[in-house]
Simulated assay, not measured.
Amino acid sequence: MELKQVIIAYKAGDAQSKSWAQTCSRQLEARKCKVLMGPSGFKDNPYPVFLSSVTDKIDLAVVLGGDGTILASARQLAPEGIPILAVNVGGHLGFLTEPFELFEDTENVWDRLQGDRYAMLQRMMLEARLFEGDRLSPKQSSERFYCLNEMCVKPASIDRMPTAVLEMEVDGQIVDQYQGDGLLVATPTGSTCYSASANGPIIHPGMDAISVTPICPLSLSSRPIVIPPRSVVNIWPLGDYELNTKLWTDSSLATSIWPGQWASVRMADCMARFIILRENYSFYQTLREKLQWAGARIRYNNNHRVS
């Protein structure tokens, strides 16, 4: 990998993340690399400025923070095909990040990257747009939104908790009407986040699939489903006359859904590309450690396992 132009994004408001970003910037500039550095957070989105201010290719994005910081970077950088080195600096769970211990010797990290001594993990993304008008000849009424974890259609109000009534169709076929807190349309990566909390299925990130999970439905028969990756999921809010229904992408507000509009979600044409420094990456180990899977209360020795 060439390191001629690199983005460094750090968690806004976190002193440790910013300090490491400054260290990385000095080291990369000493290697004749142009660095674009800035904070990323709820009120800070440096990526549009970075992407619009360059003419040459961006080789890498180093993102220092927790899962929220990483999700924000994937939404912005995946459509541009920029690989992401995500490191848990100042974060909490760190489900999507490389361990800080492998990053601490940063000079060695740059040597590894320039020597192509790393792996690349690609993760499926979703895209969503709003449409309006006649169902058979719809008119696009929003920009394109991306997510790495999930698209969520649910209402929000300042002074009350409104119930959503949502009709969902998959590939033009009506599946059901859901009454409850909302619907989650998740990637395999997002299956271990909000979707898992709503009792959705956990899907290996090596698969391409889409899960749809109702949030607190007012029916015991409303169940999560897993559908093929090329399916198109249309979600129609019903009975909302106060503009409460919103489209959320990775838990961030994307846009409001006006009466007469619907959200259309499908697999994105782009993939999020993450650099893996670990020599023995295991999704199942991540599940055990990050989600604290306890397993059986009594542990038995397995004499057939030699390692």
Rank of each mutant, 00 (worst) to 15 (best):
E101L: 08
L148S: 07
P237W: 01
L64Q: 04
A209C: 00
N234T: 01
E143V: 10
R230T: 14
W110C: 13
P46M: 08
G65L: 03
G180N: 08
M37H: 00
R135V: 10
L28N: 11
F131R: 08
P214W: 10
V212M: 15
E132L: 02
K139G: 00
E104L: 11
E2G: 08
V109P: 11
G41Y: 11
S141N: 09
Q261F: 01
D250A: 11
L93K: 12
I227N: 03
R75H: 07
L184I: 15
P224C: 13
M271T: 14
S219W: 01
L77E: 12
A9N: 12
V62F: 06
V170I: 15
A12E: 11
R144C: 09
S231C: 03
Q114A: 13
K246E: 06
Q177R: 11
P48L: 04
G260Q: 01
K11Q: 07
T55V: 07
N149F: 06
N280S: 13
D67L: 11
N244D: 12
Q173R: 10
T255H: 02
I158A: 14
S25V: 02
L126K: 09
M1P: 14
G38A: 13
A119H: 15
V109T: 14
Q177Y: 04
L102F: 07
L60C: 05
Q292H: 14
D176F: 04
G260S: 03
D14A: 01
E289Y: 03
E107I: 09
Y118M: 11
L85F: 12
V212Q: 06
T55P: 02
R288S: 10
F131D: 04
I235D: 03
N302Q: 10
I7C: 13
I202F: 07
M125Y: 09
E150L: 02
D240V: 01
D56N: 14
K18L: 08
V170A: 05
L253V: 08
R305E: 15
C147P: 02
A198Q: 05
G172P: 05
A272L: 11
T97S: 14
G13L: 04
C152I: 05
A9R: 06
G239I: 07
G200E: 09
D14L: 04
L184H: 04
D181A: 09
M271I: 07
A296G: 07
P229N: 07
L60V: 08
Q27P: 00
F50R: 01
L136C: 01
S251W: 00
Q76P: 00
I210V: 12
K43I: 02
M271N: 13
W110M: 15
L113H: 07
A294C: 05
D14P: 00
I235N: 02
A209Q: 00
E242D: 08
P138M: 05
E29L: 03
L113E: 06
E107M: 06
D105S: 13
I257K: 00
N45T: 10
Q76L: 04
V233M: 02
A78N: 04
L51T: 14
P48S: 07
K32R: 14
N149Q: 04
R278K: 15
E29V: 03
Q27G: 01
K11R: 13
T192K: 05
R123Y: 10
Y284P: 00
S73V: 10
M125H: 11
T55A: 11
Q285Y: 09
G94P: 03
G200H: 04
